[in-house]
Structures are given as C-alpha cells and as structure tokens.
Design a protein around this nucleic acid. Sequence first.
DNA 1: ATGTGC
Length: 479
Amino acid sequence: MHSINSEPRFETPFRYLIPSGYDSGMRVPAMLFGNARTVESAWKDGSAKQAINVSTLPSILKASIAMPDIHGGYGFPIGGVAAFDYEEGIISPGGVGYDINCGVSLFTVPLTYSRFAERRKEVIDEIFNRVPSGLGNKSSEPVSMNDMAQIMNEGLNWAVNNGLALSEDRERTEDGGAMKSESISGVSNAARQRGKNQVGTLGAGNHFLEVQRVEKIFDHAIAQKFGVDEEDQITFMIHTGSRGLGHQVATDHLKEISGKFSGPPLRDTQLMYAEIHGRQGISYLGAMAAAANFGFVNRAVIGWRVRQAFRKVFGIEESEIKLVYSLAHNIAKPEEHEIDGKRTKVMVHRKGATRAFPAGKAEGIFVSTGHPVIVPGDMGSRSYLLVGDVENMNLSFGSSCHGAGRLLSRHGSLNTFRESEVMEKLKNEGVYARFSTRKVMLEEAPGSYKNIDEVIGITTGAQLARSVAMMKPVGVVKG
DNA sequence: ATGTGC
C-alpha cells in the first residue's frame, strides 16, 4: 500500500520518521524523538496520529515534531513542537494548550541536605500553609483589577515592583518574564476575575511544589554557571501555570475562532486555528501573552512565599535564595530558525515541550551555556536539569522534553493505589508530603508516571539536550 | 490542566 519511502521508520536510534507520503494530507513529515517503546505507546494512545494531524495544517514548516514524553492532548499532542510561517501562517490555541505558560521554575537554597533534614517537617508545613493549593483554591491576598492589568502587561516587572521577586530574577526567566502583548483586550472580564484571586496559587493535578536534594552533578562547569554548586545542596521546584485565567483565555478564544472558522475542513476540530495577522489571531496572541505573563508572576510569587518560609525556619535571607530559571513549556512565540539553509521567521508552538537553545543561540545571560531545561519527574522519583545541545536547532526548533508523561490514567491510579501505601512509600523514599486532597495524592502516586530516566536517555541520546544535574525530592506540596 | 463531566 505504501511505497517503501513512505513507511515509518527509525532514521537513527532515537529518531522515528513518519514520511509525508505516509498519508495524503500530510504537508511535512512527522518526527518523533523516541525509542521502540515510546513510539509504540504513541501509536497506541493516538498521539502519533495527533502528530500526523498537525502535519496537515496549512503553513507548517519542516516537520511536526514530538518529544519522547509525547502523549495525547487537546488536538495537538502533549510533547509536540510545530512551527508555522510567521508572515502568512497560523496560530492554534490547541497547539499551546489550556494551561497557557504551564511551566517550571527552579531555585537553589544555601543549605545542605543534613541541615534541611533537621527541620524538614517544619519548613514543608510552613510552605504548605503559605502557598494555597488545590482546585479552586484562592490566594489569601487577591489583587486589584488595576494590578491585574499591570501583571498582564508587564509580567514579572510587577512582582519586582511589588517586592515579590528580586530584580535579578528577570534575567533568569524566559523572555524576562514579560512577553510582549499587543493588547490585553482579548482577556475577558471573566478571565480577569478568575486571575485576581489566584496570584501565588499552585493549583491541582500534576502541579506541585517540591523541595529537592541535588543527588548527582553530571556537568560541573555548567551546573556552577546555573548556580547549582554541589551535590547535597537543597533546591526547590515549582510546576504550575496561569491557573483559571489561562484556561478561560483558551476557552474564550477557541469558542470565538471555532464560531467563525472558514478554512478547509479539519481532521479534528480541536486543531482549530486563526491567521497570525488576522483579527482573531492578533487577539488570541495578545491574550495568550497576557496569560503567560500571569503565569510567570504566579510562579515568582509562589517562589517568594517559599523564600519567606526558608527565612522563617532557617533565617536565610530571600536574596540568598537564587532563581536558576523559570520557563514556559506551553507557549507559542515568534522565533527565527534556519530552514533549508534560509533564515525564516516562524511561530513556534511548544505544548509540553521546552525551549532549549544551545550556547551561542540562547537568550541573555545564558548565551555562553545554553538555556537551562527543567524536567520534573513524579514525586518520589527524580527531576533533571539539562542544557540545550548544539544539534537541536536543526532537529527540533531548539526544543527539549518537559516531563515524564502519565503511565496510568487518573482513574487507573485511583483504582490502583492505596493511601497508606503511598504515604509509606514516600516516607521510605525520604519524602515528607502534604496534599490538599486525598484524590490528588492517589492520582499522582509514584508509579502513575513513565520512567523519567528513559525520557532523559532519549533526549540526551538524540542530542536535544545534555544532562547537567539530577535532583531527588525530599519534601512535596501538591494540590 | 480547569469553578461547573458524558
């Protein structure tokens, strides 16, 4: 049926090609970074098919790309990267996801593990009490609508001006924590109302706050430049996004774009898109940037609460706790890439994928090292700090993976695990955990996620990123 | 992922 040239195949041990001849609608190939097992899993759960669907969209360039942690998402796969011609191309809210600027931040604390362990429970309880978590949970200090406008327009600058972040945090945040928004008028009043009560809140599901111990440093020179000085050092990681505000922005714009869509029939209505420079595209992009800025502020404010908790328990000044990096793994942004030997401006969609430009290409202070890539594992497992590798500009639009990906469904986890054994397992692993609900504890139980080491092995083996350090959780706060 | 499932 297919010619030999259109058969999907491994081009290299970690690169699986689905040629554009595989399916009549494909405009470009689909390229899955993975091994035999992850690729099989992508065919099984439908996410490989989703990557193929993305390759049929107008103005897509080079390839529809997937990271080794690919799994099914809304229209576009999670773990997907797709770039569209900037001048005449499209923007698709499904290629960003509902949780706009879902992302991760990593901080270092000047404490060794042994000193931390003496007061582990005290400081984790302190963090749990200062950082609201769980579905629908609200900030203890709602901001004004005027603040909301500033947060959406100026991003992290708002947090710095209000004493909730350090000035230096800006150079350690993607895009300085302030994406340019043409206009925030595309953020509905409902979205703003949801956001004003959620500054500094963690949320639920796989969002978490984790205190960690640096277990292994792979690249001492890069680690030191990132501020990760030695093994046994304490770090903390925050994984959350733009909460109800970003979700509302996605909902509003998908509805608006779908209602007036006039393009050719889509394979999947969830692939709905707008022209980048059309009225709807401009409106969505402005609102998306506003939500992204809210996400950067949210992670920064949570980081500030944790800094305060460490000050209270250990007497460490906020300024001694350094941000390594805060990044977005659900975002679309204009970038320049070389395609077929030509510099081309593209709108890169990364959904469950991390920008990871290598040395020489990276933004600001990271030009000499490459961008840090923060890859959280599941609780009780480990997380990785990577750095963009030189080859990835040609392979993946300078992108890397973002996490482990679920193994069991939420429902499956609820049926599989028991409260007592989860707590026992965490305790045995040396993790003190606080949860706002029992349901989330079970849904996020160790064993619910794929092995993070396999994802990292593929990511580094495929030369998307290089390992810098590995961290083990020692305390967890979850929704 | 998300104040409201199919």
